[in-house]
Amino acid sequence: MLQTISLLVENKPGALMRVVGVLAARNFNVESLTVARTLDDSLSRMTIVVDVEPKVRAQVVKQLNKLVNVLQATDLTEEKSVAREMVLLRVRAEMANRTAILKEAEIFQARVVDSSIEGFAIECTGDPEKLDEFMDLMRSYGEIEVTRSGLVAVSLEPKKLRLASPIPVGAAEEEQEELERVVSK
């Protein structure tokens, strides 16, 4: 299954190599990976999509969290989150089809970024399924060429705005306090 992970990483030499390296070494299949600076120049945000067996999903996050340069790895697969991808698509368009292509692009809220006698270059953003549909549609008009950006995702959980412990804790608060009293005796 596809698993989406959001990663906050220090901008240190080799940080990207470490992330990619641990995924490869642990035999996790990378579907896509994006990386860019955050508001804080010393940190980067990565969105990684891996294709793994459901039972190793926790392992993927734990192995990434183990890296010294990784501040936090979060599994967004089942979290409230928004995920988007962009495709830059060139389609060869014959004169007869040009209007139809523009109409279709409009339906997908895609933008034409270049127009020539041969055809169009179109930019389209959305979730990956929408992009798949858009590409299928364009292919029906003529030869296409695509460059996809890979997925970027953001969590919509309010707590994810700050760094939380990546290890889930299991016990009720009062139970812990009671035990703390026992232990500190």
Binding site: V9, E10, N65, K66, L67, V68, N69, V70, L71, P166, I167, V169, G170, A171, A172, E175, Q176, L179, E180, V182, V183
Partner: peptide, 18 residues
């Protein structure tokens, strides 16, 4: 200063009781 280095040493007291 290793902000990404996560050390969990104490053990969760509720889990320990269980």
């Amino acid at each position: 200063h290793l902000p990404g280095y996560k050390l969990y040493t104490e053990g969760h007291t509720g889990q320990i009781r269980r």
